[in-house]
Design a protein around this nucleic acid. Structure first.
Lengths: 219, 219
DNA sequence: GTCTATAAGGGGATAGAC
DNA sequence: GTCTATCCCCTTATAGAC
């Protein structure tokens, strides 16, 4: 027989129509989940923003949970990519830390909704984060922790618990995405500008580099 | 007539029964809103945790919104109290900043749920935070900003945008409440201990004091 | 793949007896 | 102040025609 396809309804690997739809839906979902939370978000709102009907959207993502978990997975992928910034060969700790901080602040600027969805998920106790996903991050982080420990041993930075150092970097950089509503009120803006993010990157880098002893001279 | 009471059903000002109920309900609500978000939290769950029926609870708080807003208000009150720590007379900037940081981390330890409710509200764009509440924080903050600016003018700390300095202090201290689920996984604990919070307070203080130039000597 | 119709359940809020 | 009963809307998800 000429018909030998089995299993999934996927026709070819370049079914661009489906991919376009899925991308639009995921983008819409990221925004709606960020704004209303998992339970506050409705499929109707997401579908409308994506430009199709709720019933039609359910053809692409079979359930709300499934859609949400795909959004979470995408955010986690991006996060893990950013961690690679610590391991550029031939750079000093100060330069590596600054790259990392700037990359994370840039993520807050370009993907604030993803950061918000992830943050809300963690605040609620990570009920939808499967153990599989939970354990993806840890090995990656372990490597980064060992790297920081080696910097301490070599006297390149002050002796500081690496885990808490990462908590500090993550919180100070993600706050510009997660708490943008508050920051906008305080800065007196309706939306943060590129200059605001540049200010943030400069200040966070300066305080953390100097504060950890990675940078000795005055910023 | 001997019966001359008018208006409200409040009998006296020491109706301790009502207060006890309200306190129990608010405490339960803080926990449930923190865990499930505004929309995910149900009145049934809150009432059960508070030890009464949903219908009975609605006698004390007429609606879910009203209950939620009271929870938010309580958190904001606590937050504003903590800001007073910057203005202890006769202390150096380093000591004031450290008091403030330690107070905020202690709030993350003792009132994590309040912090989580507030954080989720901001992440979602502060839809329930009335303008009245929004504007309570700003004047208070303005005073603190002027204080930091005076430290800069007197050369007691490095020149740093005070607003971003506050964003940094808030994010690094509140992360131990808001993102405790993530931190617990990474530290390999089921619950953060007092020692963990002490580690956090020491590290955050050390990096920020040294990083801002408030403390010149090695931590 | 997209549509109409609808099942099925949850959850906020009210009515009224006691 | 507390209880039983109930209204009613909203939302997820499915069935089935086209």
């Amino acid at each position: 027989m000429s018909n030998n396809q089995t299993e999934q309804p996927k026709r070819t690997r370049y079914s661009s129509s489906r991919e376009k739809h899925e991308t639009r839906i995921l983008q819409a979902a990221e925004g709606v989940f960020a704004q209303f939370g998992y339970n506050g978000a409705t499929l109707d709102t997401i579908a409308e923003r994506a430009g199709l009907s709720k019933q039609n959207m359910l053809y692409y993502f079979a359930s709300k949970q499934q859609l949400y978990q795909q959004v979470l997975k995408n955010v986690l992928d991006i996060w893990m990519d950013s961690m690679a910034l610590l391991e550029q060969p031939g750079k000093e700790p100060a330069a590596k830390l600054e790259s990392y901080i700037r990359k994370k602040i840039d993520l807050s600027r370009t993907r604030p909704n993803g950061s918000k969805v992830f943050a809300a998920e963690i605040i609620n106790g990570a009920p939808h984060l499967s153990d599989d996903i939970k354990t993806r991050l840890l090995p990656r982080l372990e490597a980064d922790i060992k790297l920081v420990e080696s910097w301490i041993r070599e006297g390149k930075i002050d002796p500081i618990d690496p885990k808490h150092l990462f908590f500090m970097i993550w919180s100070t950089t993600q706050t510009y995405a997660d708490f943008s509503a508050q920051i906008e009120i305080i800065l007196g803006k309706t939306k943060l500008t590129d200059d605001d993010f540049e200010d943030a990157a400069r200040l966070v880098s300066q305080v953390i580099l100097k504060g950890t002893g990675a940078q000795r001279q005055e910023g």
